[in-house]
Design a protein around this nucleic acid. Structure first.
Lengths: 147, 147
DNA sequence: CTTCAATTCTTGAATATTCAATATTTTCAA
DNA sequence: TTGAAAATATTGAATATTCAAGAATTGAAG
């Protein structure tokens, strides 16, 4: 009796691959919608996180929007040029920079949110309410268990 | 009674975000393991797809390993330099190039497979058998429903 | 207090990715 | 058969990302 070796399982059965594939596809769709406003997905994430009106440090932001520090710095540079966000030195810890969303940023963020909601609804339609919420639940728990 | 507007839901509840986050985390873990052999995740995918011994065209490969054509071309260039794979012009359609895995590639691929299996098993332990297979099922069906 | 390690963010150089254009071959309609 | 359109892969320039190093500030131990 041969030892059941997992080493020949096709790549399409690896969780890592399925996640990458699903992410690529869903991200591509979202990208397409947001391109109506000429904004990359990461900028939408940044605006969305900042739209609570509070100041967020770069480190905090980088975690929240899934970007490395240097990448975030450079993206924020562009967004500052576009006056979507602005920097304020943290008075309590001057190593830190607090990011804030501007009024222009808020207006744009609203339009982006509605494009993103369109997509979520499109997914709900084709994929189903039940599957969607179950998938979300499982993803959250996977993320939890990975820390 | 206010219309229940989805537009203010935090980003952490969007499917697109959860997928990106889970993918980033799992991919980071896999990357870490494969770095023992100095190989990026994408090269493992390429080797794995080619390890059926058949020739695969660049277009086919690009789809399978989730890379754009030009990115794949350049990655293959590197792998050809490392003699992990080689190109053969498709005799039936000379626009196409067929990629094959070399013997060296096969040997490396085996070592990589075992690193990848380690990870899958680590996930199974911390996340659970049931959740894992259920998540895979849901991801497959999401991908299906997106075509 | 002083100094040294840790934290936070940015910068510049090295790499990698992407977009648009090109070259080649095939397909197919006239 | 010919010529135009489609398919396939690559290239080069423009962009973007990453890695390693640096600058500024804080924390904390002696």
């Amino acid at each position: 009796m041969a030892k059941p070796s997992k080493e020949n399982t096709p790549i399409t059965e690896h969780l890592a691959y399925l996640l990458a594939q699903a992410n690529r596809e869903i991200n591509r769709q979202l990208e397409l919608r947001l391109s109506k406003e000429g904004v990359p997905v990461e900028q939408w994430r940044i605006l969305k996180v900042l739209s609570d009106g509070n100041g967020h440090s770069m480190g905090e932001l980088a975690d929240a929007v899934l970007l490395n520090h240097p990448t975030l710095t450079k993206m924020i540079d562009r967004m500052v040029s576009d006056t979507l966000v602005y920097r304020v030195q943290d008075p309590n810890d001057r190593r830190k920079v607090l990011m804030f969303i501007s009024d222009r940023g808020k207006v744009l963020c609203k339009r982006l949110n509605s494009l993103a909601v369109d997509q979520e609804e499109h997914i709900l339609e084709s994929y189903g309410d039940k599957s969607t919420s179950e998938l979300k639940r499982l993803l959250e728990s996977l993320i939890d268990s990975s820390n």
